[in-house]
C-alpha cells in the first residue's frame, strides 16, 4: 500500500498555500470537500473532550490541509484521538461533519501507510478488524488476549494476570466463554464472507486509484 502513497505524493506535489493537498483531501477523504468551509472559529477545538491531548485540534488540521502541509497532517496522530462523541459536529456553526472528516483522514493516512505505527487507536482498530473478519463475529476472548499480548509475551502475561479477577468473575456469570479460545463461534458461510470482503476491497482500491 505504501507505493500507492508515493503515487499520490507525486500527483499532489506539496506547495505552500496552494490548494494541491486540499484537492487531494477533497478527492480521497470522506467529508474532505468540507475542509475548505472551515472558518477557523475554534468551536470544535473548544468542544472536544480530548482537546488537550491532541497535537492539532480539528480547525488546525483543516488549516494545515489548506496550507499544504501533507506530511504533517497524514503522519499526525491527532485525528486518531477522536472518540466519535460528535460534540464538534453538533456545535460547528458551519455544519462541517468534523468527526467523519477525522475518521476519513485517519483512514486515508492508514491506507497510504503514513499513519503513526504504534498509535494505540490504530492498533486496536487493526486487531479488531482482523478479529471480526476471521469468523464474521467478534471473538471477545481473543480480542482481549490479542490486546494484552500486542507488545510481546512478557507484558501480555503481566496484563492478563492483572485482570485475572475480572476474567474469573465474567466466566462465573457466564459473560465469557473460555472455550472461545479454540476457534470460537462464527457466521455460517465464512468463505462467502471472505469473498465478499475481498470484493469490497477490490472496489475500494479501484476507487482510491481514481479518487473516490
Amino acid at each position: 500500500m505504501s507505493d500507492m502513497g508515493s503515487v499520490a505524493i507525486e500527483k499532489y506535489r506539496n506547495n505552500n498555500y496552494r490548494n494541491n493537498f486540499l484537492h487531494e483531501v477533497e478527492a480521497h477523504v470522506e467529508g474532505g470537500e468540507w475542509v475548505k468551509m472551515c472558518m477557523q472559529c475554534g468551536v470544535c477545538a473548544g468542544s472536544c473532550p480530548l482537546g488537550p491531548h491532541w497535537a492539532h485540534p480539528p480547525q488546525e488540521i483543516f488549516m494545515m490541509i489548506r496550507a499544504g502541509k501533507r506530511e504533517e497532517v497524514l503522519t499526525s496522530d491527532s485525528m486518531w484521538m477522536c472518540t466519535s462523541c460528535y460534540n464538534c459536529i453538533v456545535r460547528c456553526p458551519r455544519g462541517l461533519p468534523i468527526t467523519h472528516i477525522m475518521h476519513g483522514l485517519a483512514h486515508y493516512a492508514h491506507r497510504l501507510g503514513l499513519a503513526p505505527e504504534k498509535q494505540p487507536t490504530r492498533e486496536f482498530a487493526k486487531l479488531f478488524w482482523d478479529n471480526i473478519t476471521k469468523n464474521g463475529r467478534a471473538n471477545e476472548l481473543k480480542m482481549g488476549l490479542s490486546l494484552y499480548f500486542k507488545d510481546g509475551f512478557g507484558s501480555g502475561v503481566k496484563e492478563a494476570m492483572k485482570n485475572k479477577a475480572l476474567g474469573q468473575a465474567m466466566m462465573k456469570t457466564k459473560r465469557m466463554n473460555p472455550m472461545e479460545f479454540f476457534g470460537g463461534h462464527g457466521v455460517k458461510d465464512k468463505s462467502g464472507l471472505h469473498a465478499m470482503l475481498a470484493k469490497a476491497r477490490e472496489i475500494e482500491d479501484a476507487k482510491f486509484e481514481q479518487g473516490k
Binding site: 468551509m37 472558518m39 477557523q40 488549516m63
Partner: peptide, 14 residues
C-alpha cells in the same frame, strides 16, 4: 458571500 467564496475554493488564512 464569504461562504460562497469558500465554496469556490478561495483560501482564507488568518
Amino acid at each position: 458571500f464569504y461562504r460562497s467564496g469558500q465554496e469556490k475554493g478561495v483560501t482564507f488564512t488568518k
